[in-house]
Amino acid sequence: MTDVALTLHPAKRTLVRRSPFMRKAFPYFLLAPAVIYLLGITLYPGIYAVYRSTMTGKFKLEYAGLQNYRELLVDNAFWTSLSNTLVLGVVTLSLEFFIALTLAALVYRDRWVKAWRILFLLPMLFMPSAVSFLWKLLFNDGRVISDLLTRAGFITGNIDFMGSTVLARLVLVVTDVWQWTPFLFIIFVAALQGMDKEVEEAARLDGASWRKIFFNISLPMMRPVIAIALVLRGIDILTMFASVHIITQGTPGGNTETLSYFIYRTAFKSFEQGYASAASVLLLVATIILAQTLVRRFFKSGVE
């Protein structure tokens, strides 16, 4: 430091050093690479999907206007995949939420909480494709579940889990619940542990049961965390793909086909990319609307 006066006025000094334009533009320079990269993978694909969705033909493209959309809206397979996605999503998310919250409530003041956490975390550390094969083996190819149920005396013989809609969906639900309940569990435990112990102590001294403490004190305080966790998990569940591709491939009769799998199958198995693009555009619009509202609503507090 040569000039003592300047050290007393840090703000002034920076202004001297840099032009006002640079001063204003600097944060944009820091952000630009990331934003440009993300635009490249969101904006460009969006525009291309819109363009491609107006074309038909597998190799020679022809302009077809809104024909793909018109066909899509009367396509049963599309609507089935949409309703499957929602049904599977709601059932899976509710189960994961219920189990994760129960386990978190039981474990967060336990002396061995770190050990339980690692144990419950393990399924999440496998790749989803690996977990899909594991449950495909247990339910279907290896007949392990049937065998265990037989030994327990519930059934005789083998159950064909891919033969009925309910059972095939159940397999997908179990696979997802087994792997991803830990995701919610880890977040809920952290939220509960972060809570003030003294509030609980005080309530207990006043004679409140742990049930009352949990539902009237802890749970309301956890609400923002629960919302964020459910948004993140929910979006992942709505894009469920690996387990469908590996375990059911949509069987029986397309009743386990999710929207992601519908787009994949149409584009990369039937090679109807124009048609699949139309479905992509609809999905894209839906996710943009969903993302904008959910993100702003639930992450808002994190920004300030």
Partner: peptide, 29 residues
């Protein structure tokens, strides 16, 4: 700076993007 929130939320919202929705354009690109 102006637009800080919008840019921040834009970045976050790309996390919500369904892979299947952009798979075809990425494949072509």
């Amino acid at each position: 700076f102006r637009g800080r929130e919008d840019i921040g939320f834009y970045i976050l919202s790309t996390k919500m993007m369904a892979p299947a929705a952009v798979a075809i354009p990425i494949f072509v690109l």
